[in-house]
C-alpha cells in the first residue's frame, strides 16, 4: 500500500479527487453568494447558518481547508517532480502545437488562485474566525450583508477578484475534464463531461464576477 500511495497514478488520482471536492464546494459557495443579489435577509440567514452550524463549522470547514491545502501542496510537489523529469530543456519547444495554454499552465493559474485565496481569507475568513472564536463577540445574525457590501467598495479589490475568477475559469477549463480522466473516467459519456465542464468553468466564475461587480456598482 505504501508503494501505491507514492505512485504517480495514486498522486494524480488524489489531485483529481481533491479537485472534484473543490469543484462541488464552488457550487455551494456560489449558491450562498447569489442570494445576496436578491435578498439581504436570505443572504444573512444563509450566512448565519453556514457560520454557526456545528457540523459545517467543525466538520465540513476543516475538511474543506484540508482539501484546499492538499490540492495546492500536491500540485506543487508534482510540478517540481515534473520539472526535474526534463533536466535539459529544448532550445525550441512548440507546446502550443499540441496542448492548450490552460493545460500547460495549471501551475500559473493555480498560484494566482492561491494568491486570491490568501486575499479572500484576509478579507473574510480571518475576521470571521476572530469575531467568533478569539474575541467571542456577540453574534448578530444581520451583520453579514453589510460586511459583504463594505468589502466590495474598493475598486482594486473588485478588480483583483475579477482577475482571479478569470484565472479560475482557465484553471477549470482544463481541470474539470482532467479530473475525470485521472480517475479513469473516459468512455461514451466523456464528451458530455467535457461539454458540461466547459459550461461549468465559465458559468461559475462568471457568477462570482457578477456578484462582485453588482455589489460594487450598487453600493
Amino acid at each position: 500500500m505504501s508503494g501505491f500511495l507514492s505512485s504517480s497514478i495514486a498522486r494524480k488520482v488524489a489531485m483529481a479527487l481533491s479537485a472534484l471536492f473543490l469543484i462541488f464546494f464552488l457550487i455551494i459557495h456560489l449558491a450562498v453568494n447569489l442570494t445576496s443579489l436578491f435578498s439581504e435577509e436570505v443572504f444573512n440567514q444563509a450566512s448565519h447558518f453556514m457560520g454557526t452550524n456545528p457540523l459545517i463549522q467543525f466538520a465540513m470547514q476543516p475538511i474543506l481547508i484540508f482539501g484546499v491545502v492538499f490540492h495546492f501542496v500536491m500540485g506543487f510537489v508534482l510540478e517540481l517532480k515534473n520539472k526535474k523529469s526534463r533536466n535539459v530543456k529544448y532550445v525550441k519547444y512548440n507546446g502550443a502545437a499540441s496542448a492548450s495554454w490552460m493545460s500547460r499552465n495549471m501551475a500559473i493559474s493555480g498560484m494566482a488562485i492561491l494568491a486570491f485565496i490568501v486575499l479572500h481569507f484576509i478579507d473574510f475568513w480571518f475576521p470571521e474566525m476572530n469575531h467568533k472564536y478569539i474575541e467571542f463577540l456577540p453574534e448578530d445574525p444581520t451583520r453579514y450583508f453589510a460586511e459583504l457590501q463594505h468589502k466590495f467598495t474598493n475598486p482594486l479589490r473588485v478588480g483583483a477578484y475579477v482577475i482571479a475568477f478569470i484565472l479560475l475559469a482557465l484553471h477549470l477549463l482544463h481541470g474539470f475534464q482532467s479530473a475525470f480522466q485521472s480517475i479513469g473516467f473516459n468512455n461514451k459519456y466523456t464528451k458530455c463531461v467535457k461539454n458540461f465542464g466547459t459550461i461549468y468553468s465559465i458559468v461559475i466564475p462568471l457568477g462570482f464576477i457578477i456578484i462582485a461587480l453588482c455589489h460594487y456598482f450598487n453600493h
Binding site: 508503494g3 507514492s6 505512485s7 504517480s8 497514478i9 498522486r11 494524480k12 508534482l78 517532480k81 515534473n82 526535474k84 523529469s85 526534463r86 507546446g95 499540441s98 496542448a99 492548450s100 493545460s103 500547460r104 495549471m106 482544463h174 475534464q177 482532467s178 480522466q181 485521472s182
Partner: peptide, 17 residues
C-alpha cells in the same frame, strides 16, 4: 507503473500533447 516511476518519468497532467 512501478518501473515507470523508478525510471524518472514525470507525472501525467492530461494535457493531451
Amino acid at each position: 507503473v512501478k518501473q515507470m516511476d523508478e525510471e524518472g518519468f514525470g507525472n501525467c497532467t492530461n494535457t493531451g500533447a
